[in-house]
Design a protein around this nucleic acid. Structure first.
Lengths: 201, 201
DNA sequence: TTTTACTGTTGACATTGATCAACAGAATTT
DNA sequence: AAATTCTGTTGATCAATGTCAACAGTAAAA
């Protein structure tokens, strides 16, 4: 399917909330959500956020593939996150504190998003199911980051590659190797060699 | 000061909450807090949490120094976090989801803590100032972890050392070098050599 | 259609940081 | 006081990964 109808996008988001909380969504909740949800389509390479900008919009990816990266003083890009459908996208610190972000976020494939400004997001948090979802997401996010920190420090490039193949094989279908290499913290040449070795096995 | 009186510990925690939120603490809030706060002193090397255990207590460090680490299959320890006074300690995922933790957490110096069980913590969250504090802490924690991931991947050991010297010089007073090395994701020998070079400069 | 950008591969070589081993002073335990 | 553990240092060597360069196929743009 190439693109979503608005109603499908809404429905996708509602089921996501339901899947991430134990509290049901009431009809009033759904009405409130419908009134504050804004959908947006990003073309390939279109930016959701650029460095030094304040992240005014945070959102949910209904469909598509995106990346979040930073650029260091030497001009090298470092991929912080690769994002697919049903992930949240945005720089949370910049969004909440309204401070300039150090990140770029752009669409790698054409993407359908549901976006919230901070005001709208805060309105959403009054819905118990959404509040529970948000807290659960923070918890998982923090523990995923802890795991990533400890993996990056204690595993070899090859072990990290094998981890990623196990946990996110879909990345290899959706993103080119040089982005995945950067996400893994290695060069594209090293990733190419690791894959070569892995195929032989 | 070697140890805190209960009232000092309470006061330290109240000022912390005030510093992390815009909503004031009412007298009723303070009464509620006093009724649910439990203080505990840990001796050096005493564990707050061990691997495969569920983290039943999360807490605030009033005074002391602690570390959180994991042990891999080879038996090597990997320091995930070094913690000093006014930090939160605990494995958030294990605490919230009541699942076994992969981490050990112990006191490196004798430490005074204020601890909450999950029930008590949820009661505390009904206080608006505490809820705001918690959300702010999550946000900062996530962005600090993002930064650590990207630093670990893109900086050399020496640059990471210099970063740490800039951001947490106190670690070098409170923890031995082999723990700091592990926290930086390098061996103690490499850290020793980096410091040697740095002194010459 | 031609040209240019993007993606992935391979080789040669350089560098970073790990590993292993020995050692020494300080702190802690017996 | 003696023994043991903890902490930090240094040297020699090695393995993992980065860097630089060349190349090729494919996709995208002109």
């Amino acid at each position: 399917m190439d693109s979503y109808f608005l109603s499908d996008m809404h429905e996708a988001f509602f089921s996501y909330i339901r899947s991430k909380s134990t509290v049901p969504l009431t009809d009033e909740d759904i009405d409130l959500l419908k009134s504050i949800m804004v959908s947006k389509k990003l073309k390939k390479r279109q930016y959701l956020l650029t460095e030094s900008e304040i992240c005014r919009q945070g959102g949910f990816i209904v469909k598509g593939a995106m990346r979040q990266y930073s650029v260091d003083e030497k001009g090298d890009e470092h991929v912080i996150q690769l994002l697919l459908e049903h992930w949240w996208v945005g720089d949370r610190e910049s969004f909440e504190k309204e401070t300039p972000s150090p990140f770029f976020i752009d669409a790698w494939e054409e993407s359908d998003l549901i976006l919230f400004t901070k005001d709208k997001f805060d309105m959403m948090l009054r819905i118990p199911a959404a509040a529970e979802m948000t807290s659960n997401i923070s918890t998982s996010h923090i523990s995923a980051l802890h795991k990533r920190v400890s993996d990056t420090m204690s595993l070899t490039a090859e072990e990290r590659y094998e981890n990623l193949m196990r946990t996110h094989p879909e990345f290899f279908q959706r993103f080119p190797q040089h982005l995945i290499a950067s996400y893994l913290g290695i060069t594209k040449e090293t990733l190419s060699r690791i894959r070569h070795k892995a195929i032989k096995k």
